[in-house]
Design a protein around this nucleic acid. Structure first.
Length: 267
DNA sequence: CATCATGTTATAAT
DNA sequence: CATTATAACATGAT
């Protein structure tokens, strides 16, 4: 599930442990999500230490611990963070559990496309500092978008929107939402679209998602494609036309051909 | 049983 | 070399 706002919402689950000392760390050692990272490193880094801070950047999460050290988490396709009771017995897919006095902080990921990492220094990890500007930050500019679209002018717009190096946090549903708001087809080439519109709609979708899903897991309004895109047979909330779901670059792309057809040829 | 899934990434192909 | 397409990853829901 998790895209920008879903990741934000999950990250808040672990707020239950903020300022609390981790009394025990339980790890499914060898699970794919750890990518070879040894359980001992995680235990040594977090046991007896306090969770001091929670940060999100795009779909990336970083948890800072007292004494220096950062737990990084990517939720992949099916990852979630939950807060359970302190006596919670981890289930089959609960690959990492941090126990505190008030809550057990759980990382769960059935499909295991997610990732857990550890950086054992006081300073923020280099890779974190090198992440591109968030789409809702001032550093995310029309100029950046325009340069990117120009360099990749022959690539379908939908595919570019999924690139985390330019649009951190955007995932499949958000990309469809942006394409739909622009009234174009997912396959339209990057060189054919207006960077101002891409910039504007990416930000609008991100902001709206953060205000609903990111805040309380509520759905965006029914006027959004979001509410209609998940199954065959959906109808466009703007024109009532039949939505089309088709595969593009290995992912499902849902769009409204009628709206795309009415779009201005290009600017 | 067959199909599909809100993400990344290694590898092959162009 | 740069870009793009494809397969793979592992499991659960429909």
């Amino acid at each position: 599930m998790p895209e920008l706002a879903e990741v934000e919402w999950y990250s808040r689950e672990w707020d239950a442990g903020l300022g609390r000392r981790v009394t025990a760390v339980r790890v499914h050692e060898g699970a794919r999500v750890f990518r070879g990272l040894e359980a001992g490193v995680l235990v040594a880094g977090m046991e007896g230490r306090a969770l001091e801070g929670v940060r999100r950047h795009g779909k990336q999460l970083l948890f800072g611990f007292g004494g220096g050290g950062w737990l990084s988490v990517h939720l992949g396709m099916t990852g979630e963070l939950r807060a359970e009771r302190p006596d919670f017995e981890g289930g089959k897919h609960d690959h990492l559990v941090l126990v505190t006095a008030d809550a057990a902080l759980v990382f769960r990921d059935p499909r295991m496309f997610g990732r857990v990492g550890w950086d054992g220094w006081e300073a923020l990890p280099e890779w974190w500092l090198g992440l591109p500007p968030e789409v809702l930050s001032r550093g995310f500019t029309v100029a950046r978008v325009g340069e990117f679209l120009g360099r990749r002018r022959g690539t379908p717009l939908k595919a570019l929107l999924l690139e985390q190096a330019m649009f951190p946090g955007v995932g499949n549903w958000m990309a469809d939402e942006v394409v739909w708001r622009m009234r174009v087809s997912p396959g339209v080439l990057a060189g054919e679209v207006d960077p101002v519109a891409v910039h504007r709609e990416v930000r609008a979708v991100a902001r709206g998602a953060m205000r609903t899903i990111g805040r309380d897991w509520s759905d965006p309004p029914a006027t959004w494609l979001f509410r209609h895109r998940w199954k065959d047979g959906g109808r466009c909330p703007r024109c009532g036309g039949e939505l089309v779901r088709e595969e593009l670059r290995g992912r499902t792309a849902c769009h409204c051909p009628a709206c795309a057809g009415k779009a201005a040829a290009k600017g």
